[in-house]
Write a protein that binds this DNA or RNA. Structure first.
Length: 294
DNA sequence: CACCATGTTCCTTG
DNA sequence: CCAAGGAACATGGT
């Protein structure tokens, strides 16, 4: 899935486009993505409702709607899983093979497509209530992070994927943040020194913010028509120069030279998922040592 | 055919 | 009860 930055970029793009738009019809082609909501219930609640807002929490999308003026707001929760996309299209545009839900918004349609159908679009909002702090908010401070890490002996990389620790970090940015912090992905969470926790905290925020900025300044093709996906997940719009390619330091770069020290990047498996890191810059218990000072 | 893939949840085991 | 590990979900790319 899109991790936090990709979802944030999507939200910023979509929000102004759907505000004040009314749902005039719905076509549910894969009921699984609504679970536990049923098609009948979704239609009962959403047909005729108007979008009033869109926000993000972790990797979740929170669509805000109102059925009538001054009536109680309704929340539609979205999650893109690994391969989900949401975009607006003309009615004449052909629907992709794995379209899960289509909303008729009048002049256009909003398409939710998901090749692997791991995503969700549902009225059940319990999932979002149990996730941890937003990494880019003030509520996410070093002390909170340090305290949470102290209670776990899991490798720090695996811990970063725990959405109750911090919301929104996925497999790509977990590796990236650890590289930027110069910390070994294998280091048990409770063994991070206060200095390392501080560096990790900074690295998480920096990596996520940079990715959001990158995605916000590049022309993106949210519907991916006619393009292959970059790792940023949204296809770039036609004609976008290559130098806009998202820049990752270690993810999916096994064997390539580390851009800091030249050592080959390694790939290992942790909790059944790939981890990429520089064995030289990210040594266990040995915080990245800057150039030896003369 | 084999293995890999941006995620989460559920089940089993210890 | 909790932590850890693995399978499941479903489809496609290499």
């Amino acid at each position: 899935m899109p991790e936090l930055p990709e979802v944030e970029v999507l939200v910023r793009y979509l929000r102004p486009l759907i505000r004040s738009r009314t749902i005039r019809g719905m076509d549910v082609r894969r009921v699984k993505v609504l679970a536990p909501t049923t098609t009948r219930e979704l239609k009962r609640v959403l047909l005729g409702a108007t979008f009033t807002g869109l926000s993000r929490r972790g990797k979740y999308l929170l669509f805000q709607l109102r059925r009538r003026r001054n009536s109680a707001p309704v929340t539609l929760l979205g999650h893109l899983g690994m391969t989900g996309r949401i975009y607006l299209a003309r009615h004449s545009a052909p629907l992709p093979k794995h379209t899960a839900v289509v909303f008729d918004l009048g002049r256009e349609k909003m398409v939710y497509e998901d090749t692997r159908y791991f995503g969700r679009l549902t009225l059940d909002t319990t999932a979002v209530e149990i996730i941890g702090p937003e990494p880019l908010d003030d509520g996410f401070d070093v002390t909170t992070l340090a305290r949470a890490l102290k209670r776990s002996g899991q490798p720090i990389k695996v811990k970063l994927l725990d959405q109750t620790l911090v919301a929104g970090i996925g497999n790509i940015y977990a590796s990236e943040a650890l590289f930027r912090a110069g910390i070994s992905p294998k280091l048990p969470a409770r063994q991070l020194t206060p200095k390392q926790v501080e560096r990790l905290w900074r690295a998480i925020r920096r990596v996520l913010r940079e990715a959001i900025n990158g995605g916000s300044t590049v022309p993106l093709n949210f519907g991916r028509s006619g393009g292959s996906d970059g790792l940023f997940y949204f296809g770039r719009a036609a004609g976008t120069p290559d130098f806009y390619e998202e820049r990752l330091w270690v993810y999916d770069r096994a064997g390539q030279p580390c851009q800091k020290c030249g050592a080959p990047i390694k790939r290992i498996v942790q909790a059944a998922r790939s981890t990429f890191y520089c064995p030289h810059c990210q040594r266990k218990g040995d915080p990245a040592i800057p150039k030896p000072t003369a």
